[in-house]
């Protein structure tokens, strides 16, 4: 999966964006640089992983 496609997937997974925000950010992704895409992907992946870890901790 390309980083750009991965970021688009993760944008629709995080729980802090409204539909409109997701749409606008996905549109902005088209013209973003590779570096910016990578940075955003790292950030989103870290957030989602932290969220999963929190959930595991709360469930335990």
């Amino acid at each position: 999966m390309t980083e750009r496609a991965a970021v688009a997937t993760l944008l629709h997974t995080v729980d802090f964006l409204t539909l409109k925000q997701q749409r606008l950010m996905t549109e902005a992704l088209v013209s973003a640089s590779d570096e910016d895409v990578h940075s955003m992907g790292v950030f989103l992946a870290a957030y989602i992983q932290a969220e999963s870890d929190d959930l595991q901790r709360l469930k335990a």
Binding site: M1, T2, E3, A6, L10, T13, H38, A45, I48, S52
Partner: peptide, 18 residues
Amino acid sequence: GRDKVVHTPEVAAALQTF
């Protein structure tokens, strides 16, 4: 806010990318 979803294979693959 207690509805955390289980990651789909797509999301898992996207996470793996980073």
